[in-house]
Design a protein around this nucleic acid. Structure first.
Lengths: 217, 217
DNA sequence: GCTTGTGAAGACCTTCACAGCA
DNA sequence: TGCTGTGAAGGTCTTCACAAGC
């Protein structure tokens, strides 16, 4: 009923599309804050995000009442609330499986840590790769996954193995208790309920655009 | 009315969610074909894809009637049709902008060419990088983009520059006539109508999963 | 008998439009 | 006056359920 503590849990379940938009709001609010903007209206946010103002207000209304009539939203307050809602006010430990060319690129990608995501373990199935050190990480055999996930409090997995092995890696991760998975393999593994997967497959992305190019070319 | 020539254009506009699913159907059908499966029902496809059979039949019905009552779908026939619908029965020329660490990884990624996507040009704004040869590609200055896109019949662009420059690269690509863009930068550029963009931002993907992890941890 | 293709129903999400409040 | 928060309306996508046909 009250939302004063900003711990308010959504009463009804929030549509996933809404959750997918919130990180974008966070990103734009961050930019506004850096520019020194203190207050923003749903109208202005909508312009920046190419979204209708009504949608922004509706999205936010799932979680509480963050604005002031006649004025708009306090940038810093809304940012704080959204980060807390999304769990972006803390750090998350991540485990990577597959330390080939792609896996190495992911380990050295400098964009994760500043956003609160720390790759704290990396696994491979090849004896040639296990034992190597990449970045600061000692590459472990996949057999150690469950134990390491427990010890290092890993909550998120990244799959960077060839498509043919993605499903078994998924299963191992789920078995180890991981419930959020970022999948770089060009395949869509079967996912048990309660586990979230995001696929980052560039080929699939391309294949879903060419349809719109036919005729034009 | 007839769909014999399989050139049938959809009568009403097809929902984008449908277009996003079709490449998955193609992928699974490819696997079935390699295993020697000749006929498949919407039920079986649904099991493999974790989608309801009704959805598969409805999706396909936007484009024609590809099945046989009582039997199901011919794998090879459906595959041919879907590839043609999506434009995956031909090759597409792609231009990359941003030849840093990420751009180099994209150029050397071996997954594009077998699926019909050829990176035929690469651009960078840094004089230190322009003139280098990466893979087989001579890195050109961004100023040459419009001309090269025309000469080499490029239809698709890949953005692999830092977030701060993604918007201007987008604008240049659109200016050069590109209408499909794969964006690796961690930002969502403003997109003019008629241009399709797919974002492959790993941080955004992670930020949209942590919500579901709260409580559990 | 089995499976497609599809209108109709239902679920879900977006947009409207306005009461309420600063 | 200006902008939020939100029921209600509208639109879109998914699922149902069954006639048609192999």
């Amino acid at each position: 009923m009250s939302n004063r503590s900003s711990r308010a849990k959504p009463v009804a379940s929030v549509p996933e599309v809404v959750i997918l938009r919130l990180p974008q709001y966070v990103r734009v609010l961050n930019q506004l804050q850096q520019k020194g903007t203190e207050v923003v209206s749903s109208q202005q946010l909508g312009n920046l995000l190419q979204v209708t103002p009504a949608q922004i207000r509706k999205d936010l209304s799932y979680f509480g009442r963050f604005g002031k009539q006649g004025r708009g939203y306090s940038v810093s307050h809304l940012l704080t609330e959204l980060k807390q809602i999304l769990g972006l006010d803390r750090r998350w430990n991540v485990a990577l499986v597959g330390v080939g060319r792609l896996g190495r690129a992911i380990i050295s990608y400098p964009g994760f840590a500043p956003e609160g995501f720390d790759i704290v373990a990396a696994f491979d199935s090849s004896p040639k790769i296990v034992g190597q050190v990449v970045g600061n990480l000692f590459i472990q055999p996949v057999e150690e996954m469950a134990e390491t996930v427990r010890n290092k409090k890993v909550s998120i997995g990244i799959i960077a193995v060839p498509a043919a092995h993605a499903q078994e890696v998924m299963d191992m991760m789920v078995q180890a208790g991981i419930r959020a998975i970022l999948n770089y393999a060009p395949t869509t593994p079967q996912t048990p309920p309660g586990v979230k997967v995001r696929n980052l497959d560039p080929v699939h992305a391309l294949q879903s655009m060419t349809y719109y190019l036919i005729d034009g070319a």
